[in-house]
Design a protein around this nucleic acid. Structure first.
Lengths: 162, 162
DNA sequence: AGTAAATATTTTATACTTGAAATGAATTTT
DNA sequence: AAAATTCATTTCAAGTATAAAATATTTACT
């Protein structure tokens, strides 16, 4: 069975199907992300990367190290440095030293940051809820765990952390 | 039925479910995109935005205007200007005037651009195929059209073009 | 203890991205 | 036709993103 045969058989060759699947996923992701970014900008004069950092910190009672933040958000260290710099300037987060390790920095929400994020989070959840309102509830129940399995498979393929 | 009741009823309140769905989609998208970017950089010293522009042009026999490009890729006009600038500098695309409209610019692949993209496209398809290899084939068949429907619903909600 | 290796973060260079303003050209209105 | 509007693109300012180099610190090894 040579390459030609593989390509002619719709069952055996899934690479075009895979490509289409990826492009569709990307299209959905871009549309949702674009909408969320637009709302954050227009209604809160904020951005998605800022929101992501605040969200990560808000689920960490004791704050997070810079490297934990970049690990959770899956972005580079240097990137987090810049975003945290701006959030510090705005008074929403603070950097503090870590006991017994002077290399590391702990980043925490300030009181103002907590208050601010609580408002953002409710709005964010609402926007998402609105965006997905027309999508069939039954399909959601299938799609969500399927994406979770896909992610698990990807983790296996890429041999990285979850 | 007040807000508390809604929140307590797992069927009636889907905003948490929607949030989880979005976060899962995002996680999958970031992982795949990260991998593709890594490969493009390591194996071809290129980037995803460049690839996207070349891909769009490669399906357009007569080339595309700048605004058509940004429309297809769903990125801003100014963004496309920069990426095309670099592709022109590399000799992969050319800008040419459009008859009867001196405001517009047509962007086309050069011969070198076509050759280059053909190589990239095959590699790209292969990487994707590898990444999705472990994901159940039956699930793919369900997931792909479901994402398509989700996109359609989103288009309705956001009242923009497809 | 003293050196080497590993770790956490920042800095740097470059590229991508947006939204808004600016420019130049075509179309519509008066 | 002149003026106003719309349109296509570029420019600009600010923010986001990566990879790689630099810095500072900690841990491991001898």
């Amino acid at each position: 069975m040579n390459r030609q045969d593989i390509v002619r058989d719709p069952e055996a060759s899934s690479s075009k199907t895979d490509l289409r699947l990826w492009l569709r996923l990307l299209k959905v992701q871009r549309r949702i992300e674009g909408r969320l970014r637009e709302r954050l900008r227009d209604e809160f004069n904020s951005t998605l990367p800022r929101f992501d950092v605040l969200a990560a910190l808000s689920s960490a009672e004791e704050g997070l190290r810079m490297s934990e933040l970049s690990g959770i958000l899956k972005v580079s260290n240097g990137n987090v440095t810049g975003i945290v710099d701006r959030l510090v300037a705005d008074g929403y987060v603070i950097r503090s030293p870590v006991d017994n390790d002077r290399r590391a920095t702990r980043v925490c929400l300030t009181g103002a940051g907590k208050q601010y994020f609580d408002v953002l989070a409710i709005a964010h959840e609402g926007w998402l809820s609105d965006l997905l309102a027309r999508f069939d509830i039954g399909e959601k129940k299938i799609l969500s765990p399927m994406l979770d399995r896909l992610n698990t498979d990807l983790v296996t393929m890429t041999e990285q952390d979850n």
